[in-house]
């Protein structure tokens, strides 16, 4: 490997009370890579993200970023949780400005900066709306923008499209791939949708049922930018078969 990984999880094991959740997980992600973690429901994917984000201290193992241990410390990654968690009492603009404000920026400057991304994220015209007034897809984009504005080198996305209908989902996936390329971000993403994993990823980690263990690491050698047609290519078909046989 020529470049050192952006982020590395080394042998992370997690017990929650008496529940064995994660079993010696080791994964890494390179700069500007999009890696997905694919696994059955309840296998500990969100728990793994909580560990990376520093919300949970693993029973054993380390999280390394740029050769430094960040195990159990907060604020090193931008993390989008499974629920959008927009504050119902704040406008979309305020919600999205939050990470900047919490980093010490003034509300005025934060709003200005956040507002400049609204058209890119398909949110223009909804600055003063409350979260309740937005569609599911828009809420998801707002949550994604808020995550991006935390401005950490690695984005953790926990099932960002999990709650969307099939059509919205595909639109959002295409849009996100565009954004990822434009912003040159490194993305680690959770999904339990095989198609989504193949369509978006550079690499895929397959996790087992509880306790979550890495069953396989697959490289998706499909060229980018991707379109719907590649999903029927032989490479995609082989991957799909491989994944389904593992799960």
């Amino acid at each position: 490997m020529t470049i050192s990984p952006e982020l590395e999880v080394q042998n992370v094991t997690v017990y929650m009370e008496s529940l064995f959740v994660l079993d010696r997980i080791s994964i890494y992600i390179q700069p500007e890579e999009l890696v997905t973690i694919l696994g059955p429901s309840g296998c500990g994917k969100s728990t793994l993200f909580s560990v990376i984000a520093g919300l949970i201290k693993p029973t054993s193992g380390e999280v390394i970023m740029h050769d430094q241990s960040i195990t159990g410390t907060l604020g090193h990654v931008s993390y989008m949780t499974q629920k959008d968690l927009l504050l119902p009492w704040r406008s979309i603009l305020d919600n999205v400005s939050l990470p900047l404000v919490l980093q010490g920026e003034s509300w005025k400057k934060s709003r200005e900066k956040a507002a400049s991304y609204f058209s890119l994220f398909g949110l223009e015209g909804f600055e003063t709306a409350y979260p309740l007034e937005l569609s599911g897809g828009m809420k998801q984009r707002a949550a994604l923008l808020r995550t991006c504005l935390f401005q950490k080198p690695v984005l953790l996305l926990d099932e960002p499209f999990g709650r969307l209908d099939a059509i919205t989902k595909r639109t959002m996936q295409n849009w996100m791939m565009g954004i990822a390329q434009k912003m040159k971000t490194t993305i680690l993403m959770i999904t339990h949708d095989v198609e989504e994993a193949i369509y978006l990823s550079d690499r895929i980690y397959i996790l087992s049922k509880l306790p979550g263990k890495v069953l396989a690491e697959l490289t998706v050698s499909l060229s980018k930018p991707r379109t719907a047609t590649i999903m029927t290519s032989s490479v995609a078909n082989q991957l799909r078969e491989k994944i389904l046989s593992l799960l």
């Binding site: 984000a53 993390y79 968690l85």
Partner: peptide
Amino acid sequence: DQDMITLMRIMKASKMDIFWL
């Protein structure tokens, strides 16, 4: 909602921030 508090902690909010926001 405890998840909201967690989200604030992810963004490194202080106790005061969490209270007011």
